[in-house]
Write a protein that binds this DNA or RNA. Structure first.
Ligand code: SF4
Ligand code: SF4
Lengths: 147, 147
DNA sequence: TCTATTGTAGATCTCTAATATCCATTATAG
DNA sequence: CTATAATGGATATTAGAGATCTACAATAGA
């Protein structure tokens, strides 16, 4: 289990945009060159970020990308969600439909909708998400502001 | 990004073993049937758990698996590490060898070995790991003891 | 208006890791 | 001995990530 390379590229591209002057578009070419990735591939990633309202894109001559909001309004969690999707890290094996009596005590206890295995795994994910939500693109620019 | 199905099977198999009487081996057949997975596949997973000292295996007639330690000594984190491997969730894009001046402020500041992007991503992973370390197979059996 | 520039979207290809199965071998209880 | 059961290696299958190409749409500036 690892974060995809796309997530890494997205985060780095956003930092790049955040470090440039405001109101100044950066094209896919310098961005791709700087990150060491192809323009075609990075443009897919940037499109996703645009569709989710994280960056603005301007087509045509002297176009390019810029942040759609200030860097401190873009959390790591949101970027990761856009690129990786929003499914849970842990997927229940049988959709909570337990037939085995051994597991019924764990899964169905007092009609809970989340079994104890899921409670642990989802709890762990939540811990990570809270941290990722507390840190923004601005956090890595102001070296002091990492939570 | 998701936990592999193997990790789910491993956790569920361990809970199964923990719920059975002590000193009583459980074979791969009932285990696989109960989890709804093939014997061949599950046996690979069990072998990994054995190599890491989480379960004991007995070959031959009336053999099978049992926990190698008490259930409260088997953390979620350890099981996940055995099955998923121990690489970090976030992999640095260029092995910290930065040429682009825009990133040098973030990556190389005061000769740190971990850049600020990595600091956030690894920090997030650590949050999750601490939670997974605090919860054991016993936690899901004693419904009250989830951290 | 014309043209060069630049992002968009769809199709498609490759590559890797996860998933899954099969079989020959080893070990052990009875 | 023999039936049983785990092991390790080889191998097949699949899904998703990674990557590229091309036709198209939009825009700035000549
Ligand atoms: S024990 Fe929980 S996570 Fe596992 S299959 Fe049942 S409901 Fe799903
Ligand atoms: S900014 Fe940090 S994570 Fe990104 S490539 Fe540089 S050293 Fe690696």
């Amino acid at each position: 289990m690892q974060f995809s390379k796309s997530t890494g590229y997205a985060l780095h591209a956003l930092i790049h945009l955040a470090l440039s002057e405001r109101g100044h578009n950066i094209g896919i070419k310098p961005l791709a060159t700087s990150l060491g990735v192809s323009e075609s591939y990075l443009s897919k990633i940037m499109s996703k970020l645009r569709q989710d309202g994280i960056v603005r894109a301007v087509t045509g001559a002297s176009g390019g990308y810029e942040l759609a909001r200030s860097a401190d309004q873009i959390t790591f969690l949101e970027v990761i969600h856009v690129i990786e999707g929003r499914q849970q890290l842990f997927e229940c094996l049988n959709g909570n439909a337990h037939l085995q009596k051994e597991f019924s005590a764990i899964a169905d206890l007092s009609g809970r909708k989340e079994c104890l295995v899921q409670k642990v795994m989802n709890g762990a994910e939540l811990q990570m998400q809270q941290y990722l939500q507390a840190n923004t693109i601005q956090s890595v620019i102001d070296s002091g502001s990492i939570e």
